[in-house]
Design a protein around this nucleic acid. Structure first.
Lengths: 229, 229
DNA sequence: AGGGTGTGTGACAATTTTATTAAACGATTA
DNA sequence: TAATCGTTTAATAAAATTGTCACACACCCT
């Protein structure tokens, strides 16, 4: 079952309350207080749902919603907008901007959880909680582990995210910049070449069982995860 | 690759700094110090991105942004607004006015370049290239790969581009010069005969499965990709 | 057949791109 | 504050690709 929720809310007390409610109901939460931070958190592994306050300072709630729908990997993540009572206008624009549902402040925890579950049920069961396996290399999101033929592999957080991204998007080339966008996050400024180092560490980590052959260099284009060749 | 940036900034020192930073990163720059001059520079060839200071004298930054979005040929040019710290209000209006991103002064060169690249990447949508196949020779743009009956073929970047061009323009002769223009790019100083060498390399790469017969020499005219004969 | 012209080929040095290594840096924790 | 862990950067090594040449070869015409 999908359970990772990204909370985008500028007011810390409300954010804490939401976090509490969601975690009581068995969801994992990721927090962001504004547009930029939300963008940074939108990386592998992507959240399964986004709870977005319409009234972010800078009015960037809309902007975030739009930006989400423009990017290939975030397009299918359902969004629930939080609006203040009576802001009918906002509801309309929010739904226009691509929200899947909205909830009006103040709301009961029960209602919130119910809506979240409803939306998750409605959306494609893209539970990115399922283990992924290629040629005996298995990544288990639940336990946050990578196994190669029943041996647990050891790697850093970035390598894990990188591998997760690759395994969920196999047979496709990604440039260093694209990898930075998807694994490190937008609005983070890192040298292209840094990717090389993490690729190397990832290869080393999964190489003990010969799985490093699936991380392929595509000269002049980037890297690719593939079972072929 | 898109790389022309129009710089609209009234303060000469800052403009020079921006120019320096961008040119260091391989961008071409066009400069404009106010609304009128910017308008003058907005002709063929259009810039690929506009870096616009919000605080132009006469407050014409907004005006320019709006005007850009009204004209057919400039509507799709992405705009990054430069704002001073704390002018949250401006961000809102800037984004409303159609800016694609904003950056707050002071900013690091690295951040600036990263944002420019990010916006350019976002604007150029994923060219959803479909795989192309002729007689069992399949080229997959997504994975950046060439397969011959389930065997991955190995070739250099130039050979790949050459093959891609041929497969998207089959049954047609191209002179060496035309190939140079289309595959290498215009205004590159390369000998005609260099094409021969790459043709040979391409033939060798796809020859392991006998597909080299599709790359045909047309004496006195050039080369052709064809499934016939 | 012989000459002229156009194309194929293998080698090579320069250049570009990627891999690897080590050290600097930053955040977190004991 | 020191120690530790993980990330980033910078420096260096290694590898692949590129454009050209020189020469071999094929074709066409007289």
């Amino acid at each position: 079952m999908s359970r990772r929720v990204l909370l985008v809310e500028d007011e810390a007390p409300i954010r804490d309350m939401l976090k509490f409610v969601l975690e009581q109901s068995g969801f994992e939460t990721i927090e962001a207080e504004d547009y930029d931070i939300a963008q940074q958190k939108l990386v592998e592994p992507y959240p399964d749902l986004i709870l977005l306050d319409w009234m972010l300072p800078g009015g960037s709630g809309v902007q975030l919603a739009k930006s989400l729908k423009q990017h290939e990997f975030t397009r299918d993540i359902p969004v629930i907008m939080i609006t203040a009572r009576g802001e009918e206008e906002d509801k309309i624009r929010g739904l226009d901007a691509g929200a899947d549902d909205y909830i009006t402040k103040p709301f009961s925890p029960k209602e919130l959880v119910a809506r979240i579950k409803a939306v998750m049920r409605r959306v494609t069961p893209t539970s990115n909680e399922q283990p992924i396996e290629f040629n005996g290399l298995k990544l288990e999101p639940i336990s946050h582990r990578v196994m190669a033929n029943d041996d647990a592999l050891d790697m850093g957080p970035t390598e894990y995210k990188l591998l997760h991204f690759f395994m969920t998007h196999p047979e496709r080339v990604y440039s260093r910049e694209q990898l930075l966008d998807n694994v490190w996050g937008t609005n983070v400024y890192v040298e292209d070449r840094t990717v090389d180092v993490h690729i190397r560490r990832l290869r080393k980590a999964i190489g003990v069982h010969g799985h490093d052959a699936m991380i392929q260099t595509v000269r002049g284009a980037g890297y690719r995860f593939s079972t072929k060749l």
